[in-house]
Design a binder for these strands. Structure first.
Length: 564
RNA sequence: CGGGGCAUGGCGCAGCCUGGUAGCGCAUCUGCUUUGGGAGCAGAGGGUCGGCGGUUCGAAUCCGUCUGCCCCGACCA
């Protein structure tokens, strides 16, 4: 490809709409352009990268024995009514009507459609296992699209669905996908981690997420430094600590704390550390409010809390009046004297001489102790893990990093096959619902994630398998030197013929402009052709990751490229 | 949806407070010079100042309203 034919305009300045590096660089490099919130055009340069990801995913899915098909993006409402999700899915689902006023939606996912195919096509256990997949545009009407292609409303996704006769078969299919995903992310050259995850709305028993590690990631993931435990922080388990709290050293007393409604304000007012305070949250319950009590420096885990008996799911704070009805004063709530169920987090078990709300405006209690001022509580897992927490398996401690969720695999079980009547005959001639798994990869999100992981102040640094071109030829003064032109053209032809994806910067521009664009776009190998080098039979070579360029004999430079 | 902000050529911004000729840098086009890290000079094109309504002799500027976009929260590949 000749640069002059690429139709590309790069930007020196960062468009104001872009918050994170990957979005900024994709705009600056001319990979994408925004059409509306969460909707993007992939320009030729960006599309080349998207296709690379797509190709690798397709090859590995095929290798794992999955069968590619292509389902409609637009789906009839009746299928969603059959599964019960037409009403459940909410406004994430883009709904529409055809000319006959029949309701449809733009598919956010394809469990319903694929299960419909399966119930029509799969009749016998002898046809199983089957894994159908597609690479297709999805639409989810996200409440807040952001970060460019990372959380777009329209995006490219690989979604796969496995069908097995029984649970054991499902587990085997699931393991095959786990292995295929691992192979995919390794081939893509991305640093990633697999973690246990909440199965969420989709339902089912087991689920794991594949995260590309990056500081800008929206998820926090925790893993063990000694065994293979790894989990999204949403589901990472905290343990009940061993031992007893220290004996009380202080008397229970009231302290005036006007205006100290948060832990931060309380600690500032009393000059204590957050871990010496108790945080009491009053949330909605199925029968009146429920109190959740945590150590002041810990964060409530809403997913864990919503699963506790008597707590409303999804988790919501109680109205102030409801809280007062249970004896709690919002902003100054504490467990003492409450008239509602109270859940204590494990970590509170070892606290002594702590501070908590007195359930009166402007007043807290200090020197509070369990066993004396409060009943010694049963504790539950309520909080997010923090770095240094013990690993649930018992060995080592947890580390925490941020990740971008690029893949998610689920064991669905029979939820959809039962709802839609997707059964096969087993060897005894009985109709049994198939056991399903589903497996997603965010193709377009991976492009953004790769940039989050690979960039510097000059632009993108692609992993080799994703680069839009693998080598860029920068001729110096090509438009004045016939020798340079001929050498550059010859090199271009030779490398192209050898199977390289070559970008020839044939623009009549100054070298600095070409260097800057080559680095912005992130082409891994750069060859500079100049009169100076030609006289010595040399080319200048520099890898995108190298600090300095070096002069090499032509053959030596070509040798580097040949080795990839 | 709740809270906050912004909207002026393709991109980044100024002008608005205190109403009166729409401006700067980058990008684009032409010419000349230049040519190893985002060149210089000269010239050119491109904006109904987000839409609608109001106030006024006169609105980018003041008022109202709608829309779009961005940020913080819940959601997700």
């Amino acid at each position: 490809m000749r640069f002059s034919r690429l139709g590309l305009t790069t930007l020196k300045e960062v468009p104001a709409e872009a918050e994170i590096v990957s979005h900024q660089l994709m705009l600056r490099a001319g990979m994408i352009r925004r059409l509306a919130s969460g909707l993007f055009t992939w320009l030729p340069l960006g599309l080349r990268v998207l296709r690379k990801v797509e190709t690798i995913v397709r090859e590995e899915m095929d290798r794992a024995g999955a069968l590619e098909l292509l389902m409609p993006a637009v789906q009839p409402a009746e299928l969603w009514q059959e599964s019960g999700r037409w009403d459940q899915y909410g406004s994430l689902l883009l709904r529409m009507h055809d000319r006959h006023e029949r309701p449809f939606c733009f598919g956010p996912t394809h469990e319903e459609v694929v299960t419909d195919i399966a119930r029509r096509e799969l009749k016998s256990y002898r046809q199983l296992p089957v894994n159908f997949y597609q690479i297709q545009t999805k639409f989810r009407d996200e409440i807040r699209p952001r970060f460019g292609v990372m959380r777009a409303r329209e995006f490219l996704m690989k979604d796969a669905y496995s069908f097995d006769l029984d649970h054991d078969g499902l587990v085997a299919s699931y393991e095959r996908m786990h292995a295929a995903y691992t192979a995919i992310f390794e081939r893509l050259g991305l640093g990633f981690r697999v973690v246990d995850a909440d199965s969420g709305e989709i339902g089912g028993s087991r689920s794991q997420e594949f995260h590309v590690l990056a500081d800008s990631g929206e998820d926090a993931i925790a893993w063990s430094d000694e065994d293979d435990y790894a989990s999204n922080i949403e589901t990472a388990v905290t343990l009940r600590p061993d031992g007893e709290p220290p004996a009380p050293a202080e008397e229970l007393r009231r302290v005036d704390t006007p205006g100290a409604r948060s832990i931060e304000e309380l600690c500032a007012a009393l000059d204590i550390a957050p871990r010496q305070a108790l945080k009491t949250l009053i949330v909605r319950g199925t029968e009146g409010p429920v109190a959740l009590v945590l150590r002041g420096d810990h964060e409530l885990n809403a997913i864990k809390a919503a699963k506790l008996p008597g707590v409303a799911d999804p988790l919501e704070l109680a109205e102030a009046d409801d809280a007062r009805g249970a004896g709690a004063e919002p902003g100054f709530a504490g467990p003492r004297g409450l008239d509602c169920p109270v859940y204590y987090d494990h970590a509170t078990a070892l606290m002594s001489d702590f501070v908590c709300g007195a359930n009166e405006p402007g007043v807290h209690l200090a020197g509070v102790n369990f066993g004396r001022d409060l009943e010694r509580p049963e504790t539950v897992d309520l909080r997010n893990v923090v770095a240094g927490d013990p690993v649930p398996g018992g060995k080592g401690t947890l580390s925490i990093a941020r990740g971008i969720e690029v893949g998610h695999i689920f064991q669905l079980g029979t939820k959809y096959s039962e709802a839609l009547g997707a059964t096969v005959q087993d060897s005894d001639g009985n109709d049994v619902p198939m056991h399903m798994g589903c497996y997603g990869i965010g193709i377009s999100r991976i492009v953004g994630a790769a940039i989050e992981q690979g960039h510097d102040e000059n632009g993108i640094i692609w992993p080799a398998p994703l680069a839009p071109f693998d080598v860029v030829i920068v001729p110096i003064n090509m438009h004045r030197s016939e020798a340079v032109r001929e050498a550059a053209e010859a090199l271009y032809d030779e490398l192209s013929a050898a199977g390289h994806e070559v970008l020839l910067d044939d623009r009549d521009a100054r070298p600095g402009v070409k260097f800057a664009d080559a680095e912005l776009i992130g082409v891994p190998h750069r060859l500079v052709v100049s009169d100076r080098g030609l006289a010595a039979g040399e080319l200048e070579y520099r890898h995108r990751r190298d600090a300095e360029a070096r002069m090499l004999k032509r053959e030596a430079a070509l040798d580097i490229l040949a080795r990839g």
